[in-house]
Write a protein that binds this DNA or RNA. Structure first.
Lengths: 230, 230
DNA sequence: TTGACTCATCTGGTATGCCAGATATTATTC
DNA sequence: GAATAATATCTGGCATACCAGATGAGTCAA
């Protein structure tokens, strides 16, 4: 006779409180659009430790990570503040993004399989089939990000993915505010299609160049129109 | 009559124990060539805190940073280990470096002053005037790194500098082992000269391409000859 | 001798308490 | 009443104690 056993699920012994606090805080910080509200946001270690139900220690170590990633800035005995990137910093991050995505495009033409590239086109067609970007900017913004993430992932270079992950987060808020300007959504679709075509033809130089220029255009747009940034 | 005063220097209230521990540990970790010795290096928080004369807390926070930067890996209740990058990871880092330095070259042609570019050529000529690379590989290796750092800095994009800083450290050990192979030093000098010439002529496309290819060549070299990497 | 078991020990994870600088509040002085 | 000084409070930096998992030496049975 089988011994009755409780249906206990193994607790996640892999993720420490520190990791859980890190994820929770990063989620919380990146979900508020800090550029749309004027006052700076201050965090309190003790308050957060109470809210999350853990002591200050894992909170502090999570903050150490978030500070290195540029999301918060700690001023000793003053407080911990959510960082608002300047226009200059945002543009520099977009430029780096352009360089890395350009490299990703190069690597795809050299190493990706035809099936992978075909999957990228399907991802593109699926969204295109039916709606035009006008009036669906939220959806389009999601599809847009998915497209870029797919390219990064297809490159097979994990280092690119790691280094662009936070760049995406920092730039995301800005993208959402620019996607509706100057017919950018429509232009963006055209650019993406050209990039896909270059990848399909394994045209390394062209794919590299188009991917770079597409993102550098965003940098130029931010330079011109995002004067709400400091 | 002046009151006698002790010549006390203001203590560095800016750098916390955490920061000092971080610097000391990073220095210590990166100064040992982990690829030349077979056994893995394990660190002990308590031992380090005793050596550095501080408690475990700042040590732990420094370790948190070093782990995020990829220099150490913490295994709970096992220990903290100095990370040995695999060949695949090294190559991916060099590829990212190539993309970023290529961007730096582009930005220089568009934004740097003639004086800055002239300074770069002087840096190059100074080292060239007199010695050939053979027999001075250590010096050459230093000059080589200085050249690349100068390009990064001249780009004016601080984000590139931040993101390449650790890449340089990770790749440095490998560079020192490859610089003497295949006449790489001599070839490298030729490449650097061509890059400088392209920058002087403000040839954006060419400078970008040469800078990228120069570093991608290193990646290819590592792929072929660095089989001592895991 | 060998294998499994026990337990002392080691190690990173976490909670807690104290410290000093920074700020806000109150008291004091003119 | 305004400017200044004294004080209470808040906040991040640091030290320390305890916990539990992992390890390895030692023990005991087959």
């Amino acid at each position: 006779m089988a011994i009755p056993r409780l249906d206990v699920k193994p607790i996640d012994t892999q993720s420490s409180f520190r990791t859980q606090a890190y994820n929770a805080l990063k989620q919380a910080i990146t979900s508020v659009n800090i550029y749309s509200q004027p006052h700076e946001i201050r965090l309190d270690e003790r308050q957060l430790s109470q809210d999350l139900g853990v002591s200050r220690t894992p909170i502090r170590e999570a903050m150490t990570l978030l500070e290195q990633e540029g999301f918060v800035k700690t001023l000793p005995r003053r407080g911990i503040f959510v960082v608002r990137k300047s226009k200059r910093e945002i543009i520099q991050m977009i430029e780096v993004w352009a360089a890395l995505e350009s490299l990703a495009a190069r690597l795809i033409t050299l190493r990706a399989s035809d099936a992978e590239i075909a999957a990228l086109r399907r991802l593109f067609d699926e969204f295109q089939g039916g709606h035009s970007p006008e009036g669906h900017l939220d959806e389009y913004s999601d599809a847009n990000i998915k497209f870029h993430q797919a390219i990064i992932k297809m490159s097979g270079n994990q280092c690119i993915a790691d280094m662009t992950e936070n760049l995406f987060i920092h730039v995301r808020a800005i993208r959402q505010m620019t996607i509706g300007q100057n017919d950018r959504a429509q232009r963006s679709i055209v650019d993406h299609l050209k990039i896909i075509e270059a990848l399909e033809r394994r045209d390394t130089e062209l794919a590299e160049k188009l991917a770079r220029q597409h993102t550098l255009d965003l940098a130029a747009h931010v330079e011109k129109h995002c004067n709400f940034l400091s």
